[in-house]
Design a protein around this nucleic acid. Structure first.
Length: 516
RNA sequence: GGCAGGGUAGCUCAGCUGGUUAGAGCACGGCACUCAUAAUGCCGGGGUCGCGGGUUCGAGUCCCGCCCCUGCUACCA
């Protein structure tokens, strides 16, 4: 079982490029795994509690539930449009999740009663943020985000989780499992944090109105609300059906795909919670980077969205968008989005190099062989491609992290090889000489084999376009039903009837009209 | 401030433990070709390798100092 998850998205706005990058990247991993033959379960979802959601609902004069219902629908519509192949969509307002959170907290109370304790928390509270502020967020006695408001000194009694107790456990875990967190830069940051020492974290809040009731009241009988760590993070566990005993069929997760900004929660608090509950830890966490804008401004939930996701998807279609994001934004770091760059990638990589390679190959099979793929034996082209696809696999299988952009580079090496091979072989010359018929057959069979492999290896990234190429090649079944490695190498397209279709990535007639 | 990473062609980046004329892709220019989405292939121009010292026969690659950028430095998520 390969159980992978993405961060659940906070339901206080519409999906933007940052959300999309994470889902697309995780989707590629999920699809890649399925095509390796793994039994994949891919979870995504929404984080729907919290003061900001309550506030947003109040502003619109709707109930919080009505608000999150609407937001969840918009997210799901976007994921469908983008071809995200999740198996499950969890929402933290669902009954199952709430029951799971109760069970997890109670399990900690049973197994490690000392891990929860009551403590008064005093601090400066910003009404604008609805949150306590730390010194670094305060300037001249005012919250840096709301300088016009006056900070209140607030004291409240909460449940706390004894995170500090797990410092050594976490350090040992990181030492024993070097691959637990990647990329290395994030891992080093967490190791530094562990060296610095851990403070306990609050597990409940008194003034939080929209959330899961904390299972136990405080000593003075006050009912509190579960704070974010114990509300949002457990979604990965509750989605498996926990506490139903069958949850072990999926748990522990193989991989949590998250943004680099929430690494700490997933690599410190979450593992400690699980350990406290006596549950196994996820095998790995991958912290991807951010999509930035050309100016360097960063996308985040608080920053304004400057490029409309819907527009970015519609302009060249979801598959081109998926390709662009993953090729341009390294999955272990940041990358910029710009229309100029998008058009460059689209024209150079998709239309000219790859799309045209498919077009010219299929056209030649039609022209010289009446559309029936000739037979031929694998040769040095297949060998060279195979070496590239080994690297493709190493970039996606997690052994060195999840370097999707490298996998794409590998496929394009084979595209370049194919175009070069066409020119070197000059089939149009071979076709004029009947004595060269066998050579012509061999060349075109080779090109079709290349396209087969490209379709299969691009299927995780561009599922729809890969399927269309598969169809144009006259290949049987679905590209998504294929398997990498030996089964793929064994495919012999001889006799397939190609179907010449529209270009895979049509170019706009007036490129200037697309420029901004 | 502390810790970590980075500053290499117009753009995005590769350059491992120091060693022939510093590389790739895109963009740009020329040539070739015509199967193809005026696509492709070949060739080429273009870089004081952040700045200043130092070690060495020799440094983008090591050492010191400085400048600049990014991330982390815990309760919005």
């Amino acid at each position: 079982m390969f159980y992978l998850t993405t961060a659940i998205d906070y339901a206080n706005g519409d999906p933007h490029l940052g959300h999309a990058l994470e889902k697309i990247g995780a989707d590629v991993i999920a699809r890649y795994r399925r095509m390796r033959g793994d039994d994949v379960h891919f979870l995504i979802g929404m984080d729907e509690h919290g003061q900001k959601v309550a506030q947003a609902a109040a502003d619109e004069d709707v109930t919080p539930q009505a608000l999150v219902d609407r937001v969840a629908e918009r997210f799901q519509a976007m994921w469908e449009r983008l071809g995200i192949s999740h198996d499950q969509f969890i929402r933290t307002t669902s009954r199952e999740h709430i029951a799971g959170v109760y069970a997890l907290i109670e399990r900690i109370f049973e197994r490690n009663p000392d891990d929860f304790y009551e403590k008064s928390y005093a601090g400066r509270y910003c009404v604008g943020c609805e949150a306590f502020k730390t010194d670094s967020e305060i300037k001249d006695d005012r919250c840096v985000l709301h300088p016009t408001r006056i900070l209140e000194w607030v004291e409240e009694r909460n449940w706390f989780f004894r995170l500090s107790r797990y410092q050594d456990f976490l350090r040992n875990h990181f030492a024993a499992h070097p691959g637990f967190l990647g990329p290395d830069s994030r891992r080093n940051e967490i190791l530094a944090l562990l060296d610095q020492g851990l403070e306990d974290v609050s597990a409940s809040r008194a003034r939080l109105t929209w959330g899961i009731p904390f299972p136990r009241p405080t000593r003075d009988g006050e009912a509190q609300t579960t704070y974010v760590w114990f509300d949002a993070l457990p979604n990965y566990l509750t989605a498996t059906g926990f506490p139903d005993p069958s949850f072990t069929r999926r748990w522990p997760a193989q991989l949590h795909v998250i943004g680099k900004d929430i690494t700490r929660f997933h690599c410190v608090i979450w593992p400690a919670m699980l350990q406290s509950a006596g549950l196994p830890l996820p095998h790995a966490v991958w912290a991807h980077g951010f999509v930035t804008l050309a100016g360097g401004e960063r996308f985040s939930k608080s920053a304004g969205v400057r490029v409309e996701l819907a527009e970015a998807v519609e302009r060249y279609g979801p598959d081109a968008f998926r390709y662009f994001m993953l090729r341009e934004v390294p999955f272990d770091g940041d990358g910029a989005f710009s229309w100029e760059r998008f058009e460059e990638r689209y024209n150079a990589d998709l239309a000219n190099a790859f799309g045209n390679f498919a077009s010219r190959t299929i056209a030649m099979v039609e022209r010289y062989f009446g559309g029936v793929v000739p037979s031929g034996r694998p040769n040095e082209i297949d060998d060279a491609d195979a070496a590239d696809y080994v690297r493709y696999g190493e970039a996606l299988d997690g052994s060195r992290g999840y370097l999707i952009q490298e996998a794409l580079r590998c496929v394009w090496l084979t595209v370049a090889r194919g175009n070069e091979y066409v020119d070197r072989s000059a089939p149009w010359k071979l076709a004029k000489d009947p004595a060269q018929r066998a050579t012509l057959e061999s060349v075109l069979a080779t090109l079709v084999r290349q396209l087969i492999r490209q379709a299969v290896h691009l299927a995780p990234v561009m599922p729809e376009r890969a399927e269309e190429l598969w169809r144009q090649l006259g290949a049987p079944g679905s590209v998504h039903a294929q398997r990498f490695g030996a089964p793929l190498a064994a495919i012999d397209p001889a006799g397939w009837r190609v179907v010449r279709g529209d270009p895979l990535f049509p170019k706009e007639k007036e490129p200037s009209a697309l420029s901004r």
